[in-house]
Nucleic acid binder design. Sequence first.
DNA 1: TTTATATTTCGTTGATTGTCAAAATATAAA
DNA 2: TTTATATTTTGACAATCAACGAAATATAAA
Lengths: 114, 114
Amino acid sequence: MNTAIKIFKALSDRNRLRILLMLTKKKLCVCEIQDILGITVSTVSKHLSILRDIGFIVDNKEGKWVYYSLNTASKDLILNQVMLVLPFYLNDDELIQSDLDKVNNFSRKNLCKS
Amino acid sequence: MNTAIKIFKALSDRNRLRILLMLTKKKLCVCEIQDILGITVSTVSKHLSILRDIGFIVDNKEGKWVYYSLNTASKDLILNQVMLVLPFYLNDDELIQSDLDKVNNFSRKNLCKS
DNA sequence: TTTATATTTCGTTGATTGTCAAAATATAAA
DNA sequence: TTTATATTTTGACAATCAACGAAATATAAA
């Protein structure tokens, strides 16, 4: 499949857009993302693999946890153009703004049992 | 559904990308587009309605024909950013380049019976 | 008005996809 | 090693979607 289509398909899901926007704030592990999205961890993992395979995000293993963060090194034209405007575009999306509040405020201790 | 998601979904189909790229060359009626895509006219019509509803293209009725062209008046941020880079991005897509050749060379007379 | 051409709408079908639960894998703590 | 926590993979299911053919609508020519 054409890379452009893969990119647009990856962006065609609300939960994946939520993940991308969350990661503009800071890197997050899978259970933190799961807590905010409110869906099963297996589904979160699937979404993350789609975003990683197309190059939007990268993963880093730290002990028991896998942290995901935006791939700032990508040279892809569409990917970079989209990430440039997406935060502005979703400025008035209440659910996504609520996600960002949670990202800034939650405490890892309650989610990830150490 | 969120507008951003609608836009990305509209862009997630190869035939719709082909249509958009063709229309960067000139306005086309439905039967011209059908001839190039090689799919049924009802499917072409459906693709066109999706692209029109989200604001990528506009239609103009001229007698028996409906001509479609790019919506150059759109103020949508993502839509404009994407249309800016898409032609460069799909530069090396052989099918789409073949479409553009056909758009420049075909004769309406053989397609649209007057 | 009748016929021909152009386009859209409707109903159906096969393929794709987001979701979940369960099983498998990985790592750290006990 | 055993147990607990984190993550990924697998299989199943319901919803979505691109495609087709047929029917409906629209316009112009005969």
